[in-house]
C-alpha cells in the first residue's frame, strides 16, 4: 500500500467498523440463544410466532396502500407544479419538508383530536376508518421522500415538450400522465416507493397510538419481553431494507435513456 493511500483507507476502515461491528455483534448475539452453541433458534422462534406474520402482513398491506395513495397525490402535483406553476416550487419544497420537522407524536395527537370518535369526522370510530387514517398519516410521513424522488425523476425528462408532443397528437391530460409521464419516471417512483415501504414497516409511534397491530409496535413489544429474538428481528429488518435498496439499484438499470447516439 502506498503511503498516500494509507489515510483514505484508514478513514474508510474506521467508518465501516463503526457501522459493521454493532451489526456483527447483534448477529452473533442472535445466534447465542442456546448456551455455548451457535444456532438459529432465535430465528426459528421469530418465524414460528403467528403474530410476526400477522403484524408484518398488516404493515405490508398498509405500506402498499400508502405507496398507491402517495403516487396519486405526488405525481400529478409535481407534474403540474413543474409544468404550469413553477413559482410554487419553493413552497412545495417547504411543505414537503414539514413531516420531517413535526414530530409524529404531535401529528397523531392532532389526528386523534380532529378525527376522534366524538368528533365531526370520527375516523377512529371504526377499524377501517382507523386504517384509512393510518394510511393517510404514512402518506404524509413518506411525502418528503416521495416528493424528492418524483421531482428528481421529472427533472431528467423534458416533460414540457413531451406533454406538448402528446397533446398535439390528441392525448388527454390523463393519457399523458398515464402513458408518458408515469412510465418515464417509474424508476424514480419505485425508489420513492421502497423508501416509503422502509418507513412504514418500522414506524412505531402512530401505529401504536392508533392501536393498530402493525410491525413496529410488535418489534417494540418483543424487544421489551425477549432477549434474543429482538436481535434476530433486527437482522431480519436489515435484510428486508437491504433487499429494498438492492431493488432500487436493479430497477435503475431499466431507467429510460433519453440521449441520442452521436454517430
Amino acid at each position: 500500500m502506498k503511503a498516500q493511500k494509507f489515510w483514505p483507507w484508514l478513514i474508510v476502515t474506521l467508518g465501516a467498523a463503526y457501522f459493521l461491528i454493532p451489526l456483527l455483534a447483534t448477529f452473533i448475539f442472535s445466534l447465542r440463544m442456546r448456551r455455548n452453541e451457535y444456532t438459529f433458534d432465535a430465528y426459528v422462534s421469530v418465524f414460528s410466532d403467528p403474530k410476526f406474520y400477522a403484524t408484518f402482513g398488516y404493515s405490508l398491506s398498509v405500506g402498499v396502500f400508502t405507496i398507491i395513495v402517495g403516487i396519486f397525490v405526488v405525481v400529478p402535483a409535481v407534474y403540474f407544479v413543474r409544468l404550469r406553476m413553477p413559482w410554487l416550487r419553493p413552497f412545495m419544497e417547504f411543505v414537503t419538508l414539514l413531516p420531517l420537522v413535526i414530530p409524529a407524536l404531535v401529528l397523531v395527537y392532532g389526528y386523534v383530536r380532529l378525527y376522534g370518535s366524538s368528533s365531526l369526522i370520527p375516523f377512529t370510530g371504526s377499524i377501517l376508518g382507523t386504517d384509512i387514517l393510518l394510511t393517510c398519516a404514512y402518506v404524509m410521513l413518506a411525502m418528503p421522500y416521495m416528493y424528492r424522488a418524483v421531482d428528481n425523476g421529472m427533472r431528467t425528462i423534458d416533460i414540457g415538450t413531451l406533454t406538448e408532443a402528446a397533446q398535439i397528437m390528441g392525448a388527454s391530460q390523463v393519457q399523458i400522465i398515464g402513458n408518458i409521464i408515469l412510465p418515464n419516471i417509474l424508476v424514480a417512483i419505485l425508489s420513492g416507493a421502497f423508501l416509503t415501504f422502509a418507513i412504514v414497516i418500522g414506524e412505531f409511534t402512530i401505529a401504536s397510538l392508533l392501536n393498530r397491530p402493525a410491525f413496529g409496535p410488535y418489534l417494540v413489544g418483543i424487544g421489551t419481553n425477549r432477549a434474543y429474538e429482538p436481535a434476530a428481528l433486527a437482522i431480519i429488518s436489515f435484510i428486508i431494507t437491504w433487499g429494498a435498496m438492492g431493488m432500487i439499484n436493479v430497477l435503475g438499470r431499466f431507467a429510460p435513456r433519453t440521449s441520442a447516439r452521436t454517430d
Binding site: I157, D158, T161, L162, E164, A165, A166, I168, M169, N179, I180, P183, N184, L186, P256, R257, T258, A260
Partner: peptide, 12 residues
Amino acid sequence: GMVFQAYALFPN
C-alpha cells in the same frame, strides 16, 4: 401534427 426541435420522442 407537429415536429419539435428536440425530437421529443417518448423515451419509454
